[in-house]
């Protein structure tokens, strides 16, 4: 064991850091894009009925194909990894944002308008806060999936914990597989805990059960 760590210890730490950065930057970008898109779509449900199914089909393309093809066009770059991960991470958040917004009681929106709120204020002060629990459960799902997908970065020479897993599988080294898998699982659990904490912090007290 100690021999293993002296051989791979530094590499494991670097891989964890790379993996973490990929996940956090992709999920953060996906979150912003998904919220904006979700708000726009909730104004145009007829568009949503077309766009959401198309995006969900896109979601079924295996990551290995997507990152492989993107690699051929965009090369061995951080941006290839982050773009691929972001695109995959958008959908669960977008879908939940849309569903959350559409489900807001129209009476409440009317009430807000009645108080003299502008459209933007209604979204910001009434609709989004009410949809928040659903949006956050989408965010949590995206985060967990992205931790898993980020292993694909190793395919295109961009490191991540996937590097340890692939090396382990190809060289018949079980310890190496676990050295990639365990930190990844812990990272997923840790990040989804963080998402819960953020949710608790931003959710208006009246909405907490």
């Amino acid at each position: 064991m100690s021999r293993f760590f002296s051989l791979y210890g530094e590499k494991i730490l670097i891989s964890i850091a790379q993996h973490f950065l990929y996940v956090v930057s992709a999920v953060a970008m996906a979150f912003v894009i998904a919220i904006v898109l979700g708000v726009l779509l909730s104004r145009k449900p007829s568009w949503a009925n077309v766009l959401l199914p198309i995006l969900s089909i896109f979601q079924t393309i295996p990551g290995i194909v997507f990152i492989g093809v993107l690699f051929i066009y965009n090369g061995m770059a951080t941006s290839t990894v982050v773009i691929a991960l972001t695109i995959y991470a958008i959908f669960p958040i977008l879908k939940n944002t849309y569903v959350g917004l559409v489900d807001v009681d129209p009476a409440l929106i009317e009430a807000a308008k009645g108080c003299g709120m502008t459209n933007f204020q209604t979204i910001q002060k009434v609709e989004l806060p009410l949809a928040m629990p659903v949006i956050f459960s989408g965010l949590k799902m995206s985060t967990v999936y992205t931790v898993s997908w980020a292993t694909l970065a190793a395919m295109i020479g961009m490191g991540s914990l996937g590097e340890l897993i692939y090396s382990g599988i190809y060289s018949n080294n079980n310890t190496l597989i676990l050295a990639g898998a365990i930190p990844a699982a812990i990272m997923a659990i840790f990040l989804s805990w963080i998402v819960d904490k953020i949710k608790d912090a931003v959710l208006p007290r009246s909405l907490k059960e």
Partner: peptide, 18 residues
């Protein structure tokens, strides 16, 4: 010195990345 999937190695060479 980078690790890359063997399936993409030749594409990376063709595109001049490697």
């Amino acid at each position: 010195g980078r690790q890359i999937d063997i399936s993409l190695k030749y594409s990376a060479i063709n595109s001049g990345e490697v």
